[in-house]
C-alpha cells in the first residue's frame, strides 16, 4: 500500500472584493469563494486529475498547495508537514520535493537566462554540487525530458513551445521533486505536441515514481493520465472517483455535461435533448444560489420539476460515497 503524500482537508480560499464606493463606505466587503471546502488526498506514484471550467477554482488549489496563494482556512498536509502553517523559511526545503509546471510556457524561464543557467540554478538551489556534477546532472535531465544538448545555450525566445515545456519539466525535476502540480501543462501547446508532453509526463512517472496533481479543463486528457479524477464546479468537488469510473459511469449531471460537450463537438449527429445542458446562463460568482450550486444549469433539476431540496440552503448536497471510492455531491445522481 503506497503512502499518502498529500492531503488537502476542507480547503477554502475566499478572494476579497471591494464592491464599489457605496459598499466601502459601509465597511462591507464581499467575498468571492474561489475554493469552498475541498478535500482530497494523493498517494505516492499516483496522479489525481482536477478538472473543471475556468473559474472553478482548480488553479487556485494548485497555487495554494505551493503556497503561492495563502489559504483562507483548511489544511494542506504534504509529507507530514502542514504547508499552511509553515513560515516561508521552513517551507524552503520542502520545495525540493514539490514543484509546479505552469500553464504559461514562459513561466519557468527568465527571458534573459540561457537554458543552461536555468537548469543550473534549479540544480544548485537545493543541492550544493561541484561544476562537474552539475554538468552531469544537466545532461541527465536533458535526456530525461528528451531535449537536444544544443539547446543548452539557447535563450527562451529561441525555443519552440514544446521545447519550453520540456525545459519547464526538466527544471521541476532538477530540484529532485517527486510531487508535481501540473497546471494545464498542455493547453498552450499544439495538438501534435500535446501528446508528446502527456506521454513524457507518463514516462517520467513510471521511471521516477512521480506523483502529479494534474489540473486541466480537458476531461479527456485528465481521464487518460490520472488514476483518480475530481470534477470541480464553482469551488467545490462535485464528483470524485477512479478515472475509468468517471469516464464510463459518471453520476453527477455536471460531469455528464462535460462529457456530452466533448461528444457533441465531435459527432455529426445531434445529441439527445436529455443530455443537453439547461439554461445558457453563466454562473454569477457574487450571487451564489442557495443549495446546490449547479441547480441553475442542471437538466435533472429541470426534469424532476425543480425539487425544493436542490435549492434549499440547508440541504446543499454533500460529497458522499456511492461505493467503490466513488463520491458524488448530488441529491439525484444519474
Amino acid at each position: 500500500m503506497s503512502r499518502t503524500i498529500l492531503e488537502v482537508v476542507d480547503l477554502k480560499k475566499h478572494y476579497r472584493q471591494r464592491a464599489g464606493i457605496f459598499a466601502a463606505l459601509q465597511w462591507r466587503e464581499r467575498f468571492i469563494p474561489a475554493v469552498d471546502g475541498v478535500s482530497f488526498y494523493l498517494k505516492e506514484h499516483e496522479t489525481v486529475g482536477l478538472v473543471g471550467e475556468s473559474g472553478c477554482g482548480k488553479t487556485t488549489i494548485g497555487r495554494t498547495i505551493l503556497r503561492l496563494t495563502p489559504v483562507t482556512s483548511g489544511r494542506i498536509v504534504f509529507d507530514g508537514h502542514d504547508v499552511t502553517a509553515m513560515s516561508t523559511r521552513e517551507l524552503r526545503p520542502l520545495r525540493s520535493q514539490m514543484q509546479m509546471i505552469f500553464q504559461d510556457l514562459d513561466a519557468a524561464l527568465n527571458p534573459k537566462m540561457r537554458v543552461r543557467d536555468v537548469l543550473r540554478e534549479a540544480i544548485i538551489t537545493h543541492h550544493r554540487l561541484g561544476d562537474g556534477e552539475v554538468t552531469r546532472r544537466t545532461h541527465e535531465l536533458l535526456e530525461q525530458v528528451n531535449l537536444k544538448k544544443s539547446k543548452l545555450s539557447s535563450f527562451p525566445r529561441e525555443l519552440s513551445g514544446g521545447e519550453k515545456r520540456r525545459v519547464g519539466i526538466a527544471r521541476a525535476l532538477a530540484v529532485g521533486a517527486h510531487f508535481i502540480v501540473a497546471d494545464e501543462p498542455t493547453s498552450a501547446l499544439d495538438v501534435s505536441i500535446q501528446a508528446q508532453v502527456v506521454n513524457l509526463l507518463r514516462d517520467l512517472q513510471r521511471q521516477l515514481g512521480l506523483s502529479y496533481l494534474f489540473i486541466s479543463h480537458d476531461l479527456e486528457v485528465v481521464q487518460l493520465v490520472s488514476h483518480k479524477v475530481a470534477v470541480m464546479y464553482l469551488g467545490k468537488i462535485v464528483e470524485m472517483g477512479l478515472a475509468n469510473r468517471i469516464a464510463r459511469a459518471a453520476r453527477h449531471p455536471y460531469t455528464h455535461i462535460l462529457w456530452s460537450a466533448l461528444v457533441e463537438k465531435k459527432s455529426r449527429e445531434a445529441v439527445p435533448v436529455s443530455a443537453r445542458t439547461g439554461a445558457w446562463g453563466v454562473f454569477d460568482f457574487e450571487r451564489p444560489t442557495s443549495g446546490c450550486r449547479f441547480a441553475p444549469r442542471c437538466a435533472v433539476y429541470e426534469a424532476r420539476g425543480r425539487p425544493a431540496v436542490c435549492t434549499d440552503a440547508a440541504t446543499e448536497p454533500l460529497l458522499r460515497e456511492i461505493g467503490g471510492g466513488h463520491y458524488v455531491a448530488c441529491h439525484f445522481p444519474l
Binding site: 495538438v191 501534435s192 505536441i193 500535446q194 501528446a195 508528446q196 502527456v198 506521454n199 507518463r202 480537458d218 479527456e220 486528457v221 481521464q223 487518460l224 469516464a247
Partner: peptide, 16 residues
C-alpha cells in the same frame, strides 16, 4: 495524437 480513449486503446499510449 488526439487524446481520446479510442486512441489509447488503439495505440497503447498516445501516439505523439
Amino acid at each position: 495524437s488526439i487524446p481520446s480513449a479510442q486512441n489509447v486503446r488503439d495505440h497503447g499510449d498516445l501516439s505523439a
